[in-house]
Design a protein around this nucleic acid. Sequence first.
DNA 1: AATTAGGTCAACCGCTGATCG
DNA 2: CCGATCAGCGGTTGACCTAAT
Length: 514
Amino acid sequence: MSRTTSECEDGMISKDQTELPLGEEGSYDECTNGVVLKKGPWTSAEDAILIEYVKKHGEGNWNSVQKHSGLLRCGKSCRLRWANHLRPNLKKGAFTQEEEQLIIELHAKMGNKWARMAAHLPGRTDNEIKNYWNTRIKRRQRAGLPLYPPEVCLQASQGSQQCLDINGIDSGNKGQHDVLQTHNYGIPDVMFDNLKTNQSILPYVPELPDISASSVLMKGLCSSQHGSFMSPTMHRQKRLRETTTLQSSFSGGMKNDFHVFDQFQDGDKAAQYFGLSFPFDPDSVAKNPEIFGENQGSHTLANGNFSASKPTSEAVKLELPSLQYAETDLGGWGASCSSSPLIESVDTFIQSPPTGTVESNFPSPRNSGLLDALLYEARTLSSAKNRSSDKSSNSSTITPGDDAACSVLNFSETEWEDYGDTISPLGHPATSLFRECTPISASGSSLDESPPTETLTGMHLFDMNPPKNNFIFYYLSILNFAKHKTQAIPNTHRRGSGTGLYVICLHFSFSDLI
DNA sequence: AATTAGGTCAACCGCTGATCG
DNA sequence: CCGATCAGCGGTTGACCTAAT
């Protein structure tokens, strides 16, 4: 670990140290060759030494800086200092409006590829851009504003479609996914923080997964193009590794990032958590109204805390994802965003799913944001897949075979195939899971206070074995929160939005993810 | 005036890919 | 082919500053 300066002054730093005009600040680390390297803020003297070194030797060979100049900094630190502060032609000061605009556009295209973005902004460093973006994210999220102006959303949507047209595995496409992943669109992490906050209800669930549930969800969403459940920014090896982990988790491990599933190995407990009992107990809704939002509007999310207080649109406003504020003053670009925010978009699709074979001639996404684009992609993808499925003739129902919804949350088939596993890790063909489900009374569903009966029928979820339940519960929990959000949004036509989300979620869990 | 919260920024850390011996 | 080393990237942290209370 690092030592304090005082420790170094006690003779623990190298002899050269005393000859260097280093400041008194900073800590020191002993590196492998016994030389104690300084950490912390750079002094002007150190800067001068580094500048001098680069003048003489040029950039690179950062690890030799210490040898040649006596500068007690590690190579990494030198490189960073040079790149971010000392190299010539660096722009200082606040970003100009043009730069800000460019950053937004670039981020919409690239996602968190700060270095690549920096290449488009002469004189700016990746660190600067990253810091700017992160603070901007915080600011806008706090204000409930959209991160992207509508035109950028549209561009991203179109770019996404173009990528789709070319089988979309390119950097731009990845960037698109980064965007999706990073911002989670309508379902901010705070919702899941709130879920954590509610753990007190759940004595046997000491901890929700470390992973952001929304990010998992969005990873699934992203997969609509990538065909991967993993983060699009993830390197191949990492993805493979994590896929393996995931697979093994499904196989019964459910360790590490999926603690929650461990907790739910006991189906009864899981059901209790979600206000359900085994077998299904409608009373459970009353027992845990908080969890299911049964008392509509009783779930005000205020200041990141789940509250049973009367909902106020203001409070929700602070928490809701930007794209859900279609009818609120979004300020600036947000004002012109579509009136079809996330939930609405999903609703529309859920409520009126394409009957018969899903065709690819869905209306293109318009200004309704990137999620609409995703939905559009999902439909298009599903059309491409063109799996024949016995869709319900009921237009209000998405049946398990409805790949349009599934495609939105498409798990990596190829990755499973890489493992030679065309059967789900649970040992079931993906679609068979749903076929196992037998309808239950709609009134028996506590998952929505007034679910369209035809929508939640067929969800004999809780007779399935625990590993399957785990996923269901997990995502139902996610989407319950999404639903609460929707409920709290003034002028939002719910139209069973929560329910619709459930369906997508369930498809994600079984039909595609597995 | 003291405290607190939020914002900004610099720097560090861990990881990955490329390169080299 | 393999391990070591290096450069670079993205995420995170902590110090500092400022405004609000």
